[in-house]
Design a protein around this nucleic acid. Structure first.
Length: 222
DNA sequence: ATCCGGAGGC
DNA sequence: GCCTCGGGAT
């Protein structure tokens, strides 16, 4: 099981369809992608609930709020000062340059759209790819800390590869398929939470354990 | 009390 | 490469 697609099939067989970010608007996906930076998703949920209660889930509504008000609403997600500024800026760009339309911001050749997102303050590689994939439904593979940890433990990465190198490898080895990329990243997150935790990993419960270097080395250790 | 973990500025 | 931003989880 050395192929990335074989890993996907194994995860799918264990965890089934994840159906990520199914019912949200594209702009809500952008909000979530920024709020979840360096933060657990559970913290983000309360922040989004606050934004929803305050009716601030569209670019037009968000640009009208003061930085201070946004900061208070998203406080549960942490890093609230920089994240409030990032949200306000991307909302401003959407309203002023793209008619408030996320699809327009993410249109054109994939590399060009990605570069456009990366040029925005507070949008780095992972956030850009999350927006492209989950908001704009474009085939850009999302790499995160869980991806790096899981595939390093498996023995398929060294752990020191740069973000782009990991993304390039997934995109070279897998077909450019939006549902596949969507599901694969979601399954990686699930595995990282259920088995492949940083602390107290549960290798006996892991569907990949039979082919994992880390699981073999950890056998019969506490 | 420590861990978790993106982006940017240096 | 190292540091800061900040909460919630453990």
């Amino acid at each position: 099981m050395s192929g990335l697609h074989a890993v996907f099939r194994r995860l799918e067989g264990r965890f089934g369809p994840q159906q990520w970010w199914p019912a949200e608007t594209p702009f809500e996906v952008i909000i979530g992608a920024i709020l979840t930076q360096n933060t657990a998703w559970t913290n983000v949920e309360q922040a989004i609930a606050n934004l929803r209660a305050a009716d601030v889930l569209t670019p037009a509504a968000l640009v009208r709020r003061s930085p201070e008000e946004l900061e208070q609403l998203i406080r549960p997600a942490g890093f609230f000062r920089q994240k409030a500024a990032r949200l306000h800026h991307v909302a401003t760009v959407l309203v002023d340059g793209y008619g408030g339309d996320v699809a327009a911001l993410c249109a054109g050749p994939l590399d060009a759209a990605r570069a456009r997102l990366l040029a925005l303050p507070g949008i780095g590689p992972e956030t850009a790819d999350s927006i492209l994939l989950y908001a704009a439904h474009r085939p850009s593979f999302v790499v995160d800390a869980y991806t790096r940890r899981i595939f390093t433990r498996l023995g398929l990465l060294t752990g020191s590869e740069r973000y782009e190198a990991i993304r390039d490898r997934f995109m070279a080895e897998l077909p450019a398929d939006v549902p596949l990329f969507n599901e694969y990243h979601a399954l990686i997150v699930t595995l990282a939470k259920v088995c492949c935790r940083k602390r107290r990993p549960d290798c006996p419960a892991c569907p990949l354990a039979t082919d994992c270097r880390f699981a073999r080395e950890n056998r019969q250790k506490p």
